[in-house]
């Protein structure tokens, strides 16, 4: 059983690991979520191992981002279990769920930097709000900006940054909270190919240096094949196939074949 902050959470154990040493940082069991008549998640199941980079691919609007929002607590499922670090989020009291969410960072599709704050203020925001001394915040901000190769940008505003730089600041802001898991929502959408490479390298770099568990939601197959340990194809509210990049590339599933054909440049399909 995984414990955090030395506390025991046995009454709220994940039904996947059932109290034994849990190898999964994230597990969803029969997760359902609808918006009105539209079913977005239908008996959705996933297991993500510690330190793994799991990429969820699927068409726009299929529910990939909705699933990420369930992990960080922005949305609640209608039914099913969602276990993070071995604890069932739905069964946890709100205060413990909030404590758990502090170990998860999310990089939004739009980067979601606060436009009225500088890079320094954005990266240090959560730390300042927790009452950390200014000198300590400054040290951590510099350290995290160095980690994403953005030294010297502290006094710039988000509007003065390129799309790729904004993504990097968003990652630095997430890293400032020392997350055990990072969620990337469409990290390369709206970026040119060079910026996309830049972001892919950043994801790989974070995994290599910090050993964090990463969940990447994308429909960019180049990114998916580059950064993934495993890929899951989402269709009809659930993952219809899960495999390594090589297994997905060789899949005979017509949904996957069509998706790859539409989202991967011809020359990259055989690489």
């Amino acid at each position: 059983m995984v414990t955090m902050s030395g506390k025991s959470f046995l009454p709220f154990v994940c039904p996947v690991c059932t109290g034994e040493a849990c190898e999964y940082d994230l597990a969803a069991v029969k997760l359902n979520r609808s918006f009105g008549d539209k079913i977005v998640l239908r008996d959705f199941e996933i297991k993500v191992r510690r330190g793994e980079t799991f990429v969820i691919i699927g068409a726009s609007g299929c529910g990939k981002s909705v699933f990420l929002k369930h992990i960080v607590g922005l949305l609640q499922p209608d039914s099913g279990s969602l276990c993070v670090f071995g604890r069932d989020l739905r069964a946890l009291p709100p205060a413990q769920a909030e404590e758990l969410h502090r170990h998860i960072g999310m990089v939004f599709q739009s980067s979601a930097l606060l436009a009225s704050l500088t890079v320094r203020e954005n990266v240090g925001l959560a730390l300042v709000e927790r009452g950390m001394p200014a000198e300590e915040v400054e040290r951590i901000v510099k350290e995290k900006l160095h980690l994403v190769n953005l030294d010297g940008t502290e006094d710039l505003y988000p509007a003065e940054l390129s799309g790729g730089m904004r993504k990097r600041v968003a990652v630095a802001r997430t890293l400032a909270m020392n997350p055990k898991m990072i969620l990337y929502d469409e990290p390369t959408t709206g970026l040119d190919p060079i910026m996309c490479d830049d972001v892919d390298n950043l994801i790989l770099d974070m995994k290599r240096r910090l050993k964090v568990t990463s969940i990447v939601v994308t429909h960019d197959m180049v990114t998916a094949f580059r950064v993934a340990d495993r890929i899951g194809m989402m269709h009809g509210g659930r993952l219809v196939e899960i495999g390594t990049p090589e297994e997905i590339r060789r899949s005979e599933n017509p949904i996957i074949r069509e998706f790859i054909a539409r989202n991967l440049p011809t020359e990259a399909r055989t690489l």
Binding site: G73, G105, A112, A115, A126, R130
Partner: peptide, 22 residues
């Protein structure tokens, strides 16, 4: 409203910052 559309309020929540307080 602009912050909401740009997902900035969601970002605050994921950082453990209560949007009502902030």
């Amino acid at each position: 409203g602009t912050m909401n559309i740009n997902e900035e309020i969601d970002a605050l929540r994921t950082m453990g910052i209560n949007p009502v307080r902030y």
